[in-house]
Design a protein around this nucleic acid. Structure first.
Length: 438
RNA sequence: GUCCCCAUCGUCUAGCCCGGUUAGGACACCACCCUUUCACGGUGAGAACCGGGGUUCGAAUCCCCGUGGGGACGCCA
């Protein structure tokens, strides 16, 4: 049996759509699953869209998601070149073949392909038998002599020896044009597999560039975990038939197959993606979390990105990692670890100050903490508990006002960990400053 | 309008091919538990076979017709 060759053929538009990512992923998974070849081909026949910058968007997104290509730009291969803008001579050659067969004619300066009109039958790997009759001759070369998509797409698939065409269902109606061309050129049909589309999460229609969460770069910017996005995307239209959801990529590759792909469109659900992202973050090694956090802070030009004290930075991240749902929450979640002018949430302030005698609690706390041991969470905890026991109050009576004074909010890591990492001097200084402002 | 594809909880889906299930899981939502705030986690609840005809002892499952959703109908890709 010959080796599977699949291709992902994006057009450089300047952005990378989540639907494109899923199409690329299904192709890539199928190649990896079968031990086949994943080809990247750039459909850049439209000169206006042809820029290095736009190409980099494609390379960056695929690389970020971990989808390496076996043949294509940058890596080469025996079937190149892999950019349509460099394949004009190949199209000219195949055009001659088609002309010689008498299946073309010129009209209004454009070259038309004469269809057979026979029913075109494909045995789609996902949908089964699909029959459609192409009813009109169509243009294959524009009057400006440039070949159109349907023609170059088929010629490339033939000359690149593509065995499986895995693409969005929006191409299903185009397939009759393509099979007509394959036959006219005397080439065997590839196996087609039309995957369902991703629908926007609110409102009608498929997801488009303008929809919230539609662009891969958005997840990159927000420092989502690429493995989580890939895992989520793999489950949009495919599933392993048991209840597995979170799976390492090796397992997804092992279990993925075309017959397991659904036939119906799927609505995008950012909540489920967020949940998947959190699950990946929770079990990530601390070192990697720190790296991603550093990069995120830097990207947003925050001081923490280049914080000189690596050990301190690591301690703060260790407190945050198990608590947040996504890395883009980090700047807000950890402000007070990296600055003294952290904001005080007015609503929380009002709420906390309205209850009990916060000023008195704070004074007691300051007294006790002055001589307390800050070297471990347990030591800090024991100091506060001893105090609470002596005043017949609860830990919580001290915790809420202390948290407000030291962090400005009511959400965050455990107060003991927060104190330990911040250190005695800063904790006391903040409490005194807060007390003075009451 | 014509052609093509699709149809199970709000969402992603298992079950359908090879008719018999209390129609399962996950996200979301709600309640409770855990608890040092906030999360995580745990337990539980509510929530679906689009409609109508057939076939059959029996239909989510097979067939037909509606309806609904999606896509394609470019000298875009």
């Amino acid at each position: 049996m010959s080796q599977v060759r699949v291709r992902f053929a994006p057009s450089p538009t300047g952005f990378f759509h989540i639907g494109s990512a899923r199409t690329a992923l299904f192709n890539w998974l199928y190649a990896r699953h079968t031990g086949g070849v994943f080809v990247l081909r750039i459909e850049d026949t439209d000169q206006a869209r042809n820029s290095e910058e736009f190409l980099n968007v494609i390379y960056d997104s695929l690389t970020w998601l971990g989808m390496t290509w076996d043949e294509g730009p940058k890596v080469g291969g025996a079937f190149g070149p892999y950019r349509q803008s460099e394949r004009a001579h190949i199209y000219a050659e195949y055009l001659e073949k088609l002309k010689a067969s008498g299946r073309t004619y010129e009209k209004d300066g454009a070259l038309f392909f004469k269809i057979s009109g026979e029913p075109q039958i494909i045995d789609d790997a996902i949908r089964g038998r699909v029959e459609r009759v192409e009813e009109k001759d169509f243009v294959i070369v524009r009057s400006d002599k440039t070949p159109v998509f349907h023609f170059v797409n088929v010629v490339d698939d033939i000359t690149m020896a593509i065995t499986h065409v895995i693409r969005g269902e929006d191409h299903l109606s185009n397939t009759s044009k393509h099979t007509e061309l394959f036959k006219a050129l005397g080439a065997p049909l590839p196996v087609y597999a039309h995957i369902p589309l991703i629908l926007k999460q609110n409102g009608p229609g498929k997801m488009s560039k303008r929809d919230q969460g539609a662009l891969v770069e958005e997840y990159q910017r927000r420092s989502y975990i690429p493995e989580a996005l890939v895992n989520f995307l793999s489950l949009l239209g495919w599933n392993p038939k048991d209840d597995s959801e979170k799976m390492p990529i090796a397992e997804i590759i092992r279990r993925f197959d075309l017959p397991g792909v659904n036939q119906s469109n799927a609505r995008f659900d950012d909540k489920k993606l967020a949940h998947m992202n959190m699950a990946y973050m929770l079990e990530m090694p601390a070192a990697r979390f720190c790296e991603l956090a550093r990069a995120h802070f830097r990207r947003h030009q925050l001081a923490a990105g280049d914080w000189p004290d690596g050990a301190y930075f690591g301690e703060v991240m260790a407190l945050a990692q198990p608590k947040i749902k996504a890395i883009d929450e980090l700047p807000g979640y950890t402000v007070y670890f990296f600055a003294e002018d952290y904001p005080i949430d007015p609503k929380v302030r009002e709420k906390v100050l309205a209850k009990g005698e916060p000023a008195a609690r704070l004074k007691e706390l300051i007294e006790v903490l002055r001589t307390a041991d800050f070297s471990s969470d347990a030591a800090v905890e024991s100091a506060i508990k001893t105090l609470a026991a002596s005043t017949n109050l609860g830990f919580g009576d001290y915790q809420s006002v202390a948290r407000l004074a030291v962090s400005g909010t009511n959400v965050g890591p455990s107060i003991t960990g927060m104190f330990r990492v911040l250190g005695k001097d800063r904790v006391l200084a903040r409490m005194e400053r807060f007390l003075a402002g009451l």
